[in-house]
Design a protein around this nucleic acid. Structure first.
Lengths: 237, 237
DNA sequence: CGCGGCCTTGATCGCACTCAATTCTAGTGG
DNA sequence: CCACTAGAATTGAGTGCGATCAAGGCCGCG
């Protein structure tokens, strides 16, 4: 089902004080004294596209702050099929459930090259005991996850295929350059939208023909978007 | 779109010390001293089926602990359509996002007669400052919401209509008596499953004909379930 | 009794799935 | 440098499931 690749590389212990995205992550508000409390190591890891952060049901020993890249969160159904339920981006946290339970509720896999800080749950607990601000950061992360899941349900699981594909493309648009988007393999897009590979492919092909999106590479991953036209497809008046 | 009914009745200030479901709610671990810190009133409210706890975008001033009944959580899309994204039951909390933001991310409506404790957000903050256990209760509630949302996506938004309807029925089975279930109006079931009223009705009718479920009342709300057969429909081998 | 709401049933249509073939690209080794 | 291959994306033809449109039935209520 899942290609099991555990393909991470260790890039050293994290240097929280000088973290590039310190403002948006869990430890952003901690003081130097707080950080000194950390004894167990926080590791700075790289995962290549397709590799595993953790599987559903694994013992939950770490939470992962995502510094770069995209992570898919999947859920395994009793009948063995797998569904993508959310995507995490830089600033999000994977495996938050480690703070309240002892196994992961779902699997997390790198969709592209990903950089994370892997924080042992013990460290988190220790720091949490001292820092109310960390508490509110955690709450904030939880709230984001719920909002994302709810959006996902509302936007990507209902409606005609064209519309769903359009909405997914918009969701994947670059944050800095909103008229560019990097898609995934058709198979994965299909799993996100509850459609088949062929239907996704046809929708993209049709929109390309109609000039709503423009293919920029040979693999069909990178596109330039005609925002106005695409918005119209995504949210029909 | 939504029938606007604000139809709640005040049943007095909450008596947390003697709460029937104290063990499963937010304030379950607080001491009497903690509870004495509360000055702003926690109200004990009843909502009749169809009435509003809060709308999406309302100023978030309270969180609602559900003591009895069922609450639907809906999200409004830009194009004006509305989707049901989750259901809350006794022990769950509605409006958790009040702890981190100042508007509600989604709407909450009573599906049946509902009893709640309405806790002003200020009270929660004050107590949270004193009680680490309240913190972990909150985390637990957040984790439940995410797990529920993820389950919802995985189980109820993909697959053939029969299967989805079967899964929803199982989700609505009584906790004490698992072979009985109380459904909703077909319209609402359709909104939950991303199907049409007619399709839901046909699926239920078919399963009734096949003896997988048995109608117990005239309105088509209450059913007795043939668990084994229904499980087979919900999770095809 | 008549009306309105909801559930059900029927007939038809179209979108998305299925099955299958083709094209394209990147990677491999001659 | 070019065949060869494997994997992915695309395209095509045909089918079926669920949406749509439209009646009809059932119950509660005035």
């Amino acid at each position: 089902m899942i290609p099991i690749k555990v393909d991470s590389s260790w890039r050293g212990h994290a240097d929280c004080k000088n973290c590039a995205i310190r403002g948006s992550v869990l430890f952003g508000h901690l003081t130097e004294d707080d950080l000194k409390l950390i004894h167990a190591p926080i590791d700075d890891l790289e995962y290549s596209a397709g590799s595993v952060l953790f599987h559903q049901q694994d013992a939950a020993k770490h939470i992962f702050t995502i510094k770069r890249g995209l992570v898919k969160v999947t859920r395994l159904l009793p009948d063995g099929t797998e569904r993508i339920v959310r995507i995490l981006r830089a600033g999000d946290v994977a495996g938050l459930e480690a703070t309240v339970g002892d196994t992961y509720d779902n699997g997390a896999y790198a969709l592209r090259q990903v950089s994370v800080c892997r924080i042992p749950i013990g460290v988190l607990r220790k720091l949490a005991a001292h820092s109310p601000r960390l508490h509110s950061s955690l709450m904030q992360k939880w709230a984001n996850q719920v909002r994302e899941s709810d959006n996902w349900i509302a936007e990507l699981t209902h409606g005609p295929s064209r519309q769903r594909v359009a909405r997914l493309i918009l969701k994947l648009a670059d944050t800095e350059e909103p008229s560019l988007a990097t898609l995934f393999g058709r198979e994965e897009m299909a799993m996100m939208l509850g459609l088949t590979v062929e239907t996704v492919s046809r929708a993209i092909a049709a929109m390309t023909r109609e000039g709503i999106i423009h293919r920029l590479d040979l693999h069909g991953r990178r596109y330039r978007l005609e925002r106005d036209a695409l918005d119209d497809v995504a949210v029909p008046a």
